[in-house]
Nucleic acid binder design. Structure first.
Length: 267
DNA sequence: CCCCATGTTCGACA
DNA sequence: GTGTCGAACATGGG
């Protein structure tokens, strides 16, 4: 599930543990989610450490601990974070459990496409600092977006919006929502937009990020019926703007839902 | 049994 | 370097 707003939602699920000490770390080193992680180092460093703060950036999360421990988590396709009261009996898909006095902080992932990293240092690790600017930040400018579209001129917009190196946090549903709101066909070559379309795309990217954070990032509310989101997987779904049928096809390697009546391929 | 899945990465190839 | 495609990862739901 997790895209930008879902990641922010999950980040907050560990808030009850902020300011509290980790008494014991439980993990299963053979789990695929630890493929880039020194689990022995993680276990040693986090046992007795205090969770001080957390950050979300695109689809990545970073948890900062006392004594310079940095726990990075990517949720993959099915990952989630939650908090439970102690005592807690781990489920087979719980891969990392940080036990505190009052509660446990759990990373759970059935499909194991998620990823855990661990670094030590005064500053957040390089992989975190080197991420592309947040889409709602000052640094994500129309010029930055335009330059990227130009470099990917022949790729379909759908594929380009999914590139985390420029659009951190955008996933399949957000990309479809953006293109639908901006009335752009998902197959449109990224380099073929008019200045007006480019400008519309830019404002829509930011609008969808902000809306998603408001509705989902806060308390996982239901997306309004006027969005594409609630209609995209319905069989025989209809476009909330035109009332016409939605279609699904594979574009940029992913199932894409759009409204042909609204999103036309100009040539 | 079949197909599909809100993600990422890698290799082959044009 | 760009772009496309398919496979792989692993599990569960319909």
């Amino acid at each position: 599930m997790p895209e930008l707003a879902e990641v922010e939602y999950y980040r907050k699920q560990w808030d009850p543990g902020v300011g509290k000490r980790v008494k014991r770390v439980r993990l299963y080193p053979q789990a695929r989610v630890f493929r880039e992680c020194d689990t022995a180092q993680l276990e040693k460093a986090l046992t007795g450490a205090v969770l001080e703060r957390s950050f979300a950036h695109g689809k990545q999360m970073l948890f900062g601990f006392s004594d310079g421990g940095w726990l990075g988590i990517h949720l993959g396709m099915t990952g989630k974070l939650f908090t439970q009261a102690t005592p807690y009996a781990p489920d087979r898909h719980d891969h990392l459990v940080l036990e505190q006095k009052a509660c446990v902080l759990v990373f759970h992932d059935t499909r194991l496409f998620g990823r855990v990293r661990f670094d030590l240092g005064k500053e957040p690790p390089a992989w975190w600092r080197e991420q592309a600017p947040d889409l709602l930040s000052e640094a994500f400018t129309p010029e930055v977006m335009q330059a990227f579209l130009k470099r990917r001129a022949r790729s379909p917009l759908k594929a380009v919006l999914l590139m985390q190196e420029r659009f951190p946090g955008i996933g399949n549903w957000m990309a479809d929502e953006i293109l639908w709101r901006a009335a752009l066909h998902p197959s449109t070559p990224a380099g073929s937009l008019t200045p007006r379309q480019t400008s519309k795309l830019y404002t829509t990217v930011r609008e969808v990020c902000a809306d998603a954070l408001d509705v989902i990032g806060t308390d996982w509310g239901d997306p309004p019926a006027m969005w594409l989101f609630p209609h995209r997987w319905e069989d025989g779904g209809h476009c909330p703007k035109t009332g016409k049928a939605l279609v699904r096809e594979t574009i940029g390697g992913r199932t894409t839902c759009y409204s042909p009546a609204r999103q036309k391929l100009s040539r």
